[in-house]
Design a protein around this nucleic acid. Structure first.
Length: 824
DNA sequence: ACCAGGAGCGC
DNA sequence: AGGCGCTCCTGGT
């Protein structure tokens, strides 16, 4: 009798040999594995799949509840019905994904075993495809070699860069007599074995003119055909360098195979045009299978355990890919005078600067014609027309894509690589992120967008504090890659901790690699989140909170670690806000959110409260608060209130307040240049308030003057954003008028962030409360300082409240001119 | 302030 | 039991 175990449980995959032997002769379709292959979901639980794919609800039963359900007839029947429903759902899922027809086609194409195709086995499919192809041409195929043939190669450093030098590879590279058999890239090796695709540095920002997305159809298969790359055509090199392109005239086996696949696909697609409805889906699956097969060949050339492993060929292919992309960029920029803003491996994005979709399309036609002239097999094509786009980083962007159905345009939001599309963020942060993205792409004015984002943050914080957010929205999902016990640093991994505890208390039987673990970050009731224990120790399964009041959601964690970073990244190139201000809206200490080093090369040099704890740095670049004497009409820089009193010496260099005589201004409230005695030089609270307000007004008008400068230093174009619509709009998208001679963008010279920082500095100068809290001093010193400050407080109160009101207005993204008429 | 290691994406 | 390129997070030093 075979052992009916769960399977080897590696990634929860497949059935054990025991089970397989019981169903010998039958096909096993594991819908879990199929779904993981064919779909992109945050979780592949049957519940989740049924909901998202089949739009059906599945009743969940906890494993520990099952025994008790046998006790009563009704609950037993319920259990049976649930089991039955699960079976039907699995079956329905299989049909929904067309698993059977698709794997059937794939198997027919490659000539392997259907059962293996159902298990995934992509490498094996290609192996059989090539075995058949070479056999047909009367070649003798290479033997399959074991994976650890060349174990003695660990002299190579792990993670070493592939471009660091290829000289050290001579000995091992072609030591054997057959390049096809090299097993260089042994299992377990981490670093890449060769260079891959080219990724262009994106020109970050928000674009509101049409963007063209052009890409080469099936780049790597096309390269193989274009340059006749094959085992039979490429000359081997002896020094480990990348081989040259073949001059061989006769078509190689791989190119021929691919050509056949492409032609068959063309024929099938042709047939689809006049096919009866019932045949349509069948053809479509056939067509998909042909494409999948063609595209998976390259991957297996670079797979070190493959029978047809051929690093030189894979390297040659990717090298051609990089050169083709670079040539295309050069052609588009230099010959066609268009701006390429991004590109990845086989695609380029072109900023047309046009509002007219038809004109944009005609540019696409022109570009594709020019590029396609140069190649026989390779074809570049228009793949997307973006009305607006937010380009954040390499492989991270979102856009409003305009598509057509029967010539009727409609818009779809496409999101690539952003936090929201990743499974390892909580739903609440994804929802907020989605909201912000929609706002940013909405086309509304900058002020409106910033206002609504800030408003949403304030609102969500309120809701979180009031406990109005469902528990589900806090759930974070992560995948186990090992057995939970097998993690060396399991103490630090929240999902590992949760899995271990669940197994311990018997709420489940255990976990396998590949399982996804849901958890929420909590804190013990009554303690603050900043408590000593690490985050992993505070992770709990959502169910652990439902019947236990001891652990509650750690709101601070979610505000600062889940919501803030997500929103902050989305807004990185949006003028009018900053990480600090977003933190303010979330009620976080804004000084803790300094610009991270990896944002250093970012567009926004004009920023912001670079919240280093050091005030000197934080307010770097701010203009001093100037007080002018009513009597002698001389003026001086106003010192910081607290600094004058506690006499701290270490900020002698605080930029705006460095002159000595002024240091004791706050003690005497007199002009330092006037005679000590007499009534001359007395400065009244109203005067201070008036002067503060006047200077704040000055910076405000500087902001409203809206001077714009090109961000390309060599260009220096400067203008005023006269156009009102444009002035409220996202400046990042407006290309320098010197274009195409300059590829820069216009930026506000004095941004809202600058204004905010300046006003914050004024607040800081006049502050009599917050600074005090930050100072660590003895109780006696604190007392005397308190006394001094309480004397000053009424004097500065008026000025401080005027400027702090303005600052707060600014902080929420709308500056209301009417508020500036303040009675003094 | 760096580095290593892992997830998880994009292509 | 395809590949590489690129953020990000986390913990450790």
């Amino acid at each position: 009798m075979p052992k009916l175990t769960k399977g080897n449980s590696m990634f929860g995959a497949g059935a054990s040999p025991g089970i397989m032997s019981c169903i010998a002769g039958r096909l096993l379709c594991d819908t879990f594995l199929c779904s993981r292959d064919l779909l992109k979901e945050v979780s592949y639980s049957l519940t989740q799949l049924a909901k998202n794919q089949l739009h059906k609800d599945r009743k969940e039963i906890a494993p520990q509840d099952i025994p008790s359900m046998f006790q009563k007839l009704e609950s037993l029947i319920e259990l049976i019905e649930c089991a039955q429903q699960d079976a039907w759902l699995s079956l329905e899922l299989m049909f929904h994904l067309s698993v059977i027809p698709l794997t059937h086609q794939l198997t027919k194409l490659s000539g392997n075993l259907w059962g293996k195709t159902l298990q995934g086995a992509r490498a094996q499919r290609v192996e059989y495809l090539l075995l058949h192809a070479f056999h047909e041409q009367k070649y003798i195929n290479p033997d399959k070699t074991s994976a650890h043939a060349n174990e003695a190669k660990d002299q190579r450093l792990p993670k070493r860069r592939i471009d660091a030098g290829s000289a050290d590879r001579n000995a091992e590279e072609f030591g054997g007599d057959d390049a096809k058999l090299e097993t260089d890239h042994v299992k377990g090796k981490k670093g890449p074995a060769y260079a891959g695709g080219l990724v262009l540095e994106p020109k970050r920002g928000l674009y509101d003119k049409y963007i063209l997305l052009l890409d080469f159809n099936s780049l790597y298969p096309s390269i193989i055909q274009e340059y006749n790359i094959c085992f039979t055509t490429v000359e081997k090199t002896t020094d480990g360098s990348i081989p040259h392109l073949p001059s061989f005239k006769e078509i190689g086996v791989l190119p021929k195979l691919l050509r056949d696949l492409v032609e068959r696909r063309k024929r099938v697609k042709q047939m689809m045009k006049n096919a009866p409805r019932i045949k349509l889906q069948q053809h479509d699956i056939h067509q998909q299978a042909l494409k999948l097969t063609a595209n998976s060949m390259y991957g297996c050339l670079g797979f070190s355990n493959s029978r047809f492993y051929a690093k030189p060929l894979a390297e040659l292919i990717t090298l051609q890919g990089r050169e083709i992309l670079q040539r295309t960029v050069d052609l588009v920029q230099n010959n066609l005078n268009l701006e390429v803003i991004y590109g990845d491996t086989d695609s380029i994005m072109i900023h047309t600067g046009l509002d007219d979709i038809e004109k944009a399309k005609s540019i696409a036609v022109k570009v594709t014609q020019e590029v396609n002239k140069k190649y026989q097999c390779l074809v570049i094509d228009l793949d997307g027309l973006y009305k607006r786009m937010l380009l954040l980083k390499k492989k991270k962007y979102a856009a409003i894509k305009v598509q057509f159905r029967n010539d009727i345009p409609y818009e779809v939001i496409e999101r690539k690589g952003l936090d929201m599309v990743r499974r390892d963020w909580s739903l609440i942060s994804k929802e907020i992120g989605d909201f912000c993205l929609n706002q940013i792409l909405s086309g509304g004015s900058c002020d409106d967008v910033v206002e609504s984002i800030h408003g949403a943050l304030v609102k969500v914080r309120e809701e979180m504090k009031n406990g109005e957010i469902q528990l589900e929205k806090y759930v974070i999902t992560k995948t186990l890659t090992k057995q939970p016990e097998a993690y060396p640093d399991g103490k630090n991994q929240p999902h590992v901790q949760v899995a271990l505890r669940m197994k311990q208390n018997g709420s489940c039987t255990g976990f396998s690699p590949g399982d996804t673990i849901p958890y929420v970050i909590c804190c013990e009731q009554g303690t603050s989140s900043a408590g000593s224990s690490g985050m992993a120790q505070r992770a709990r399964h959502p169910d652990e909170l439902k019947d236990n009041g001891k652990w509650i959601i750690d709101i601070d964690y979610y505000l600062s670690q889940q919501i803030h970073p997500v929103v902050s990244r989305l807004c990185a190139s949006i003028q009018g806000t900053s990480p600090e201000r977003l933190a303010d809206c979330l009620g976080l200490d804004s000084t803790k959110f300094q610009r991270r080093p990896n944002y250093a090369a970012d567009v926004d040099h004009s920023s912001l409260l670079l919240g280093s704890v050091d005030d000197c740095e934080r307010y770097e670049g701010c203009e001093p608060l100037v007080i002018s004497c009513p009597s002698c009409s001389s003026s001086f820089d106003c010192p910081v209130v607290v600094t004058s009193f506690c006499g701290s010496t270490d900020d002698e260099t605080v930029s705006p307040a460095r002159e000595k005589p002024e240091r004791n201004f706050w003690q005497s409230l007199r002009c330092p240049r006037c005679p000590i005695d007499g009534d001359m030089g007395r400065v009244s609270p109203a005067m201070i308030a008036n002067q503060v307000k006047r200077q704040a007004d000055h910076f405000l008008s500087l902001y409203y003057r809206n001077t714009m400068t090109c961000d390309d230093e060599t260009c220096n174009y400067t203008t005023r954003g006269l156009n009102l619509r444009a002035s409220g709009d996202f400046e990042r998208g407006s290309v320098c008028p010197n274009y195409p001679h300059c590829n820069g963008h216009l930026l506000k010279k004095y941004t809202e962030a600058d204004l905010y920082k300046q006003l914050s500095y004024f607040c800081h100068v006049l502050d009599t409360e917050k600074c005090l809290q930050k100072l660590n001093m003895e109780a006696s010193a604190r007392m005397s300082l308190e006394t001094s400050l309480s004397r000053i407080r009424p004097v500065v109160q008026m000025a401080a409240s005027v400027v702090s009101k303005m600052r707060d207005r600014c902080a929420f993204g709308w500056i209301n001119l009417s508020d500036l008429v303040v009675a003094v």
